[in-house]
Amino acid sequence: MSSLELIGISKSFGNVKALDDINLTFEEGKIYGLLGRNGAGKTTMLKIIYEMLFPNSGAVHMDGHAIGGNDTALGKMFFIGEKNYFPEEMKVEKAFRLMNDFRKDFDPAYANRLADAFGLNIKKKIKSLSTGYASIFKNILALASNAPFILLDEPVLGLDANHRDMFYKFMIEKYSESPFTAIISTHLIEEVADVVEHVVIIRNGCIIRDEPRESLLDSGYSVSGKADTVRAFVSGREVLGTDALGGFETAYVLGECPKNDLPEGLEISRMDLQRLFIQLTNS
């Protein structure tokens, strides 16, 4: 089993601590959601994993060994982010050929099939691609790379709803045929909520959650009803936040949902991933 491990990673930019003692393990064949607000440290973390940035302390291990510039370990990963790393003047088809020359597992036929499905003109120069198609181009490279670990930093940025839908479907299809590890950083939480198996939430450079999606969703609930009844019910419980509308209140609570022991007039709901994320990262 391959695994990717972050051990005590810290990184500062000047006085700003971007990552603070990150310890994480990414297992083989799982889809991870890497969630965090703007500036939380998601991109920094992905770049450190792929050695595009170096930490002030700590190490990234692939299969138990520090990566430290090792080409075999780096070759097991593929990273896509905001920037394009091919020459701007290069055409898409040339980039596919280059990938084919440098990465033995790259599947050019699959890349062309996806380009066709998305309507990406492979004769176009990379610099002339719109924001959406630039993202699609990078996503195709990642999916066709057949790398065991793909790191996707905001993969659906600029994609319209139809293309986002297609992207998730192609990714799940590919994953279903031969599982890989995907680490997806995104702000469109609702869209990936059912796609990911495991969720990592990062806040101000620290990991605040690292657990399977289902258990994360089971870790809290919301309770609504008359404000005084809700307040009486939640007193002594760990409340993440509240929403009020006149005399009606909803409280977001951590802990096991006490379904059978509920005062009259209160309603309990499970929180969805986005709501839970907002409550956990609000402060």
Binding site: I31, D165, Y168, K169, I172, E173, Y175, S176, E177, P179, E191, D194, V195, V196, E197, R213
Partner: peptide, 15 residues
């Protein structure tokens, strides 16, 4: 199949 279901509903195949 699991693949068809997970692709159609964009859900993790494990789910």
């Amino acid at each position: 199949s699991t693949t068809e279901i997970s692709v159609r509903f964009k859900m993790n195949p494990a789910t």
